[in-house]
Design a protein around this nucleic acid. Structure first.
Lengths: 257, 257
DNA sequence: CGGCTTATTGAGTGCGTTCAACCGGTGTGG
DNA sequence: CCACACCGGTTGAACGCACTCAATAAGCCG
């Protein structure tokens, strides 16, 4: 059920309007609402200080601009602090497809460690802020703190699982099942962050949703309309409310066969 | 172009019949044809000895039996030494879909590190042999040999990239494009291992191919027939020969639009 | 040989696409 | 101020790819 985008990691953020005001005010991990995602639990104060010193450089990203681009050399991982991002990949024709939507507390750039250059681009869906994690320094930290290393392996592994779920998703699910899954997935991820799982705003346009789900804009639009007719959701522009989560889950699981 | 299954890692094995006789005869990493895949290059003799001591336990797996199963607690990673494997995942209904085909020199089980239990099953497509890598011991080794740690991160990262490619694959490619991609992918992976990229045997049945590509058996069968009619391949049972790689690449890239 | 699994081939259906028109909101220039 | 264009989204009609259902063929093994 936690298929699609979204690490399974529990990142309990404080509630609040999920616009561009979450995340910690200071640049410190200590006070960051999402530190459970980046750091292993139970670090000592001294360890935390060392980690902060090595990793804590913030960076602002404007809406529609790129955090990194396909082909750029890999140097940093990034933890999303504020805002939403999407990752896109180009295939051999010019086409871009979307590999995931990412919200605060998630890590970006992990797919580039292996090859040394980014195979995907990360685009900000709204003005946002990330925490830059220089990979070379990170490596040194991992050697120093084995529990941190283990934590990092878990994050990488969960990313693998996440991608595998997305495969099932596009491989065997029907259009309505895909869309229902996406809505429920976003819902559960907002819930993990302390936001309402029932009402939220879609940060991406219909075209992005379509390119993520492997569908066309028209199909997405028609399905949203049908879900509304059926009383499953209320939707106005990009603001959506899940009215009947049970039935949505049924659809995602293939109830209508 | 190296979409789909297959780490981008170059694993240069010696040529030879690719039945169940490759891999090293002894249980030593030193003499293993695929050690470039599991181990970083340039380990000293002493380091190699330590690694071998910690990791070198072999295990035989009979055709159609499981190396590990969905739900089992995670304890080991496995490097394929001999034979072919497939990994399958169950979704919420009973359905199993296939997440990848794996050949000698590839690592299995990485998706389980995060959660502590396997989310997928690994099934032998023929009698095979794996090298068992106890994860706890591996962790200790990584702390001891930072270059090994870095290598391990690269492998995990490449697995993420591999899965992302598979997404594009199922998300936006047509049936013939998917099948052509699979054939070419297998081809290039055999080439990396020193086998013929033109002639090889499909280790999996049509149903497995279909479940991997997100298609039906009938469609796979029809497409193979069409490829043969068009002079792209020769196929008899599971023995396939790629007669026109150029055109196959064109199809995989969406030439026929 | 018969029984079984695996693969091929055919006919008809349906889901999602393609092509196209339309709508509402927003910005821009005359 | 309105006219116009533009962008994002909705809706309609027709097509086509891949699925479903069904029958047949080909290997494999007892």
């Amino acid at each position: 059920m936690d298929s699609m985008t979204g690490t399974g990691v529990v990142g309990i953020g404080q509630a609040g309007g999920h616009g561009s005001s979450s995340g910690s005010g200071s640049g410190k991990c200590t006070t960051c609402a999402y530190r459970n995602l980046c750091l292993p639990p139970g670090l000592s104060g001294r360890q935390l200080a060392v980690v902060e010193g090595a990793l804590g450089c913030r960076r602002r990203i404007a809406r529609n601009s790129a955090l990194f681009r396909d082909g750029q050399p890999f140097g940093n991982l990034y933890a999303v602090r504020v805002g939403h991002f999407m990752t896109t990949r180009a295939d051999h024709r010019g086409e871009h497809y979307i590999t995931g939507f990412h919200m605060a507390g998630e890590l970006l750039g992990m797919d580039a460690i292996g090859s040394g250059s980014h195979a995907s681009s990360a685009i900000a869906l709204e003005d946002g802020e990330v925490c830059e994690l220089p990979y070379a320094r990170l490596q040194r930290l991992l050697v120093e703190f084995p529990q941190f290393m283990e934590h990092f392996h878990r994050i990488l592994s969960q990313e693998i699982q996440r991608e595998q779920s997305a495969i099932r998703f596009l491989g065997i699910l029907r259009a309505d099942e895909r869309l229902a899954s996406l809505l429920l997935n976003l819902s559960s991820r907002y819930a993990m962050r302390g936001f309402s799982p029932r009402r939220f705003r879609l940060r991406m346009g219909r075209d992005h949703i379509a390119r993520y789900l492997g569908l066309t804009i028209e199909t997405v639009s028609r399905l949203l309309g049908r879900f509304r007719e059926q009383g499953l959701i209320a939707i106005e522009q990009r603001d959506v409310e899940l009215l009947d989560m049970r039935r949505l889950e049924g659809i995602a699981a293939g109830a209508a066969r």
